[in-house]
Design a protein around this nucleic acid. Structure first.
Lengths: 196, 196
DNA sequence: AAGTATATTGTCAATAATGACAATTAATAA
DNA sequence: TTATTAATTGTCATTATTGACAATATACTT
């Protein structure tokens, strides 16, 4: 008999707006007013669904980590069990894939603020390691004879080129940068052929 | 006859504290109170030397861009006229070199906030291009026959691995990550040998 | 010692951001 | 239609942040 609850949808809507604001203003620069405006609701709504600012922030951190982890899982699912390094790089760098740079930008903002919120350090590290592992798995399958440390290095390099690209999106980087970073990732992957 | 001016020293001291705060709280999260505390001065001092918040922020942006550009120039000076790619990578990745990750973190925070301060976009892009060019110059000297687009790609890749390393410092990344990213950069540079 | 320009601090008003809660509106079932 | 529960909005007190300026302290010169 009660009015149907919108808690899930509204929470998601608010957290997504919050994520957008964090990607633009940083974690400590995203005010409730910013979030409310971005979400198209009045400020008290935020409190109603997510509690006070501390609780909101806690929820946001989980949300960002979760979004990043989900993107990692989606990447993994798209590549298992037979994806090649070329497939991986296409997924990471092709604009056709609907990538959401906000997530990576918000992620970066969290990393920046980790000293002020020490408890989020471990989740951030873990989700990043998870991302590395997906890359590693693809490389290991393609180059089973390559030494482990070299695979790790190439994985880190590919990850770095990808993260870097997303980090630069606010600058409206010229399209060539994307192509160049993609080529760098390709070169890294190709380096494993020699050792196989 | 007047009391000697401390404008230069104090301005530098304040801007450096401001830079620290931006690297920790982001551009929109660094309050005057934060900066004053970090600099070890009272808040009105900030206004006295740098004006109101807008002017302070303007000065900070110039300061960060300048610090980054100076670091680039220092890198260039250390490598001209005979530095090799191996020298470059040592300078970028060796902990012995007194690198200041705050500069890169603050730089990243500026990039994040560029939508809110559009005028800083071009200086940021320019200083980044300058950084690329130093890397390119070293590679071009070592591999004069390598195709230009490949040099660009490798430069972007090396830059990305370096930027990525600094971006992760708040996470206290394990030392292996540094070694792995350095190795990735080395692999990228080595890839140019094949084409020469 | 006195004058002078600057450094430094103290203080208060104005604005922004947050916390908290009351009041109203809306949707559903009986 | 009415009861019920949640959504949504309005509002005010508290705190945080900034702007502005007066007042004092300090170092140097003559």
């Amino acid at each position: 008999m009660p009015r149907p609850s919108l808690k899930d949808q509204r929470s998601e809507q608010i957290l997504d707006a919050y994520l957008t604001c964090v990607s633009r203003f940083g974690l400590e620069g995203a005010t409730q007013e910013h979030v409310a405006t971005e979400a198209g609701v009045k400020r008290p709504i935020l409190r109603h669904y997510l509690g006070n600012k501390d609780q909101m922030t806690g929820a946001l951190i989980s949300h960002v980590v979760d979004r990043f982890a989900r993107a990692t899982t989606a990447l993994q699912d798209a590549l298992e069990p037979t994806g090649t390094p070329a497939d991986l790089i296409d997924l990471l760098f092709d604009k056709s894939v609907p990538n959401d740079p906000r997530v990576m930008l918000a992620y970066q903002s969290l990393v920046t603020s980790v000293a002020n919120h020490p408890s989020m350090r471990q989740p951030l590290v873990n989700s990043l390691e998870q991302f590395f592992e997906v890359i590693e798995a693809v490389l290991k399958r393609a180059f089973p004879n390559a030494p482990a440390d070299q695979i790790r290095a190439v994985s880190q390099g590919i990850s770095a080129t990808y993260v870097n690209l997303d980090s630069l999106t606010p600058l409206n980087p010229p399209e060539v940068w994307r192509a160049e970073l993609k080529q760098a990732a390709t070169i890294l992957a190709a380096s494993l052929e020699a050792t196989a």
